[in-house]
Nucleic acid binder design. Sequence first.
DNA 1: TACTCTTAATCGCTAAGGGT
DNA 2: ACCCTTAGCGATTAAGAGTA
Length: 236
Amino acid sequence: MRFAAPLVRATLIKRYKRFMADVRFDDGTEVTAHVANSGAMLGTAEPGMEVWLSPASNPERKLKWNWELVTVDGHLVGVNTAHPNGIVAEAVAAGQVAELAGYDSIRREVKYGVNSRIDLLLEAEGRPKCWVEVKNVHLKRGDWAEFPDAVTVRGTKHLAELTDRVRAGERAVMVYLVQREDCAGFRPAADIDPVYARTLAQATRDGVEAICYTCRLAPDGIDLGAPLTMDLTERI
DNA sequence: TACTCTTAATCGCTAAGGGT
DNA sequence: ACCCTTAGCGATTAAGAGTA
């Protein structure tokens, strides 16, 4: 995924009210930017951090800047949760995701289950439908990329609905997209949300596939990176 | 009265779907 | 080809309901 224009560097003053962050550009001007990430953003929203912003394409928008990247310990981390679906969809279309290759059509945000939407629905003649849920991962503890960074009831519900698809004879794949380049592997944050970790382990036993990829991040775009090994061992 | 638990509202943006 | 409306995103928090 390319940014429409190169990102602009700034310094984070503070993040607040879930969707907003005050930042200071290098020339000293301060603006409030939109944060497309309602999560806890553990370790990625500390005042003083170097951040990268994109200008809003819609002139009607109240907030003229989007917070896209943050530098943590010298590494870029993507914080915009609107991007992972597109990054994965692009990579699938380009045949870069081995597990999801060979489908004719990719549709985004297709309704299913109870008031849910699947991130990607892959279809091909003569093959079972393939339901793909993408989760953005930005939390790093030790050398591990971990998800979630806060209790996610919705995430657990998504796993249940993916399991339902498998029971219906279709394919269901959880894709964890790690928007950073400095992790050695992925595991669920069982101490943060034990219910989610347990549900994920059970879902994989029930036939839901779970895969994990990193990203290559730069101020001009974000692309799919290498697969990341996963440890779904239950610890609690 | 003093807790715990549940529910609903909240923010700005996006994609989908309906309408013209 | 364009609006316009709506649901969903999801953690937080306040308000409301329920229980002892």
